[in-house]
Design a protein around this nucleic acid. Structure first.
Length: 271
DNA sequence: TGTCCATGATCAA
DNA sequence: TGATCCTGGACAT
């Protein structure tokens, strides 16, 4: 479920419904039960996101819930609802009016502020944070021989970026995914970073990733589907074999470092 | 009912 | 590089 826009959207959602209220905190599944018990009945003090990490402050102790959704985790915020499938429900936060349910996270742990600092300190700049400094990402990119497709998945380069943004921004910049970081110009990195800064906040608002801003070519028009199952409109992500929306050539796909990479061999020839 | 797959990351070898 | 963890939706049988 998650690239950074999801985490940031969740932080806002959780604050909107829980901030300042006393909340019931449980772990029906049991795996977070001991920690949940410590927080249960506490006041929800705030939620914050950094990259794909979500931090929830509950109670007066200063302790935080650190959540990372991983590949398959889901956190949904709803109105009151019955407790279903408790065997997979890691964390449930509720008031009389709202329920938040966490299933399948990679991480759900009670941590100290110092531990939060360590998590955040290991991350690169997050395009969704106001003070983010893209130059920190450039410092790492510019001295790396790794392909840019690899670098953009590195949370030390740009925190919150995932496979969709990786593929889509490389397409938007017409950049060959295998270009070594050291071969990128500073200006080129600046355009990549600007794309993140432009696209990601919009996705927080919309709850979906849209990257297609230009009109499609006539020959690509009407050849579905352009909208990925995740709900957004994209150029190449998960469109293998379908015509490129710009040039019409079949979108390519390959496995790269354990993840699927999609690109247009014609549009993204340049290095 | 079963199999595959996913917007992720870590760990061992 | 491969195995592993976590869950559920889509699709095939």
């Amino acid at each position: 479920m998650p690239e950074g826009h999801v985490t940031h959207r969740l932080a806002r959602e959780l604050e909107a419904v829980f901030a300042g209220r006393s909340v019931r905190v449980t772990s029906p599944q049991g795996r977070f039960a001991a920690s949940a018990g410590l927080l249960d009945g506490g006041r929800f003090a705030g939620a914050d996101a950094y990259g794909k990490n979500l931090f929830l402050a509950i109670g007066e102790s200063g302790a935080l819930i650190h959540i990372h959704l991983g590949l398959i985790g889901k956190l949904r915020v709803d109105g009151p609802r019955p407790l279903l499938n408790p065997e997979t429900l890691r964390l449930r936060i509720e008031t009389a009016d709202h329920v938040a349910e966490l299933r399948g996270p990679q991480t759900c742990a009670l941590i100290t502020p110092a531990e939060q600092d360590a998590v955040v300190g290991a991350l690169g700049p997050d395009p969704l944070r106001p003070a983010a400094d893209g130059e920190r990402g450039w410092a790492r990119v510019s001295r790396s021989e790794r392909p840019v497709a690899s670098l953009l998945m590195d949370q030390r380069v740009a925190a919150g970026v995932g496979n969709i943004y990786r593929c889509e921004v490389l397409f938007r910049q017409r950049l060959n995914p295998m270009t070594p970081g050291s071969q990128l110009s500073h200006r080129r990195w600046g355009r990549i970073w600007s794309d993140f800064v432009e696209l990601m906040p919009q996705a927080v608002l919309d709850g979906r990733i849209d990257t297609v801003l230009e009109p499609h070519t006539p020959e690509a028009m009407g050849r579905p589907p352009r909208v990925d199952r995740h709900g957004g409109e994209v150029y190449v992500y998960r469109r293998p074999g379908m015509p490129c929306l710009v040039c019409g050539q079949r979108v390519r796909a390959r496995e790269f470092e354990g993840r699927n990479l999609y690109w247009c061999g014609r549009c993204q020839r340049s290095r």
